[in-house]
């Protein structure tokens, strides 16, 4: 069954959706969208380093994404204008990554694969890495769920109940780096943040509790992955961007429903 590249692609997409959507809820609730961008864009530098030192792309991306996420996490809350700083870091990381890749012989052709993903080229090893990473992220989120939610509502609220919000931030940072590393092959560094944010945002109007929002986001992520794959096959379009397009269309649909409900109420 796994010998069919379409099945492998579908499973890879589902794996990313399962991990990215609930994590994306936290990214949305905590207003970390730029944070996700910076982490994802930094991963291209990791890809360049990995190829240069002939390591696995997953390891390189994970290490650099984690370094970026930790840096940004450490800088936040120290009085910097965060959106500017993150904007600077996200785009410089991407630029440095692109320049670094250009130094490598013969990789130029592959660059598009890392920027926009190459889900149809996912092999069995990739699939194992994607699902391994996704399960790890999911386990982390389930384990820390209550504490993460408390810290998201307010850091003082967390401190008072014995939850260290800095530790929970670290958990999210780690999860983010993992998602970035596993999602590169599927949607590419430019669109990872979309897989985090769009399903979560699309789930918001249909949700009354955080758990419901996370569950619906997973569902929307999965539908987007499968729908995008099918559409890209039918229309002969790049798969990663098509997946994001489907997610975006679902987002507009649920937002409209939300708007109608709000006006009716």
């Amino acid at each position: 069954m796994l010998d069919d590249f379409l099945i492998r692609a579908a499973l890879a997409g589902l794996g990313v959706a399962v991990a990215a959507a609930p994590l994306g809820c936290f990214v949305v609730w905590r207003r970390m969208a730029y944070f996700g961008d910076a982490t994802a864009h930094a991963a291209i530098l990791g890809v360049a380093l990995a190829l240069g030192f002939s390591m696995s792309v997953f390891t390189g991306a994970l290490v650099v994404a984690l370094a970026m996420a930790l840096t940004v996490s450490a800088l936040s809350g120290r009085g910097y204008a965060m959106d500017t700083l993150l904007g600077v870091m996200a785009h410089s990381a991407l630029a440095f990554g692109l320049v670094a890749v250009s130094f490598l012989q013969g990789v130029r052709i592959d660059l598009m694969a890392y920027l926009f993903g190459d889900i149809l080229a996912v092999d069995k090893t990739d699939l194992m890495v994607i699902w391994g990473g996704a399960m790890l992220v999911l386990a982390l989120l389930v384990w820390r769920w209550q504490a993460l939610l408390t810290a998201t509502l307010g850091s003082d609220l967390a401190y008072a109940s014995g939850v260290d919000p800095k530790r929970e931030q670290l958990v999210l940072t780690l999860a983010l780096a993992l998602v970035v590393a596993v999602a590169i092959k599927v949607v590419g560094v430019l669109l990872i943040a979309a897989m985090l944010i769009i399903p979560a945002a699309a789930a918001r109007p249909l949700s009354s509790t955080p758990e419901r929002m996370a569950a619906i986001a997973v569902l929307i992520g999965m539908v987007s992955a499968l729908g995008g794959l099918k559409l890209s096959f039918m229309l002969d379009t790049p798969t990663g961007p098509t997946i994001v397009c489907v997610a975006a269309i679902i987002f507009s649909a649920t937002s409209t429903i939300g708007l109608i409900n709000r006006n009716a109420a």
């Binding site: 949305v28 998201t152 109940s161 955080p210």
Partner: peptide
């Protein structure tokens, strides 16, 4: 306590934290 509008949470759910 500023609860971000993107975070749906009912009074009942709020009481079950942490």
């Amino acid at each position: 306590l500023h609860i971000d509008l993107t975070l749906p949470i009912t009074a009942r759910r709020f009481l079950s934290l942490p």
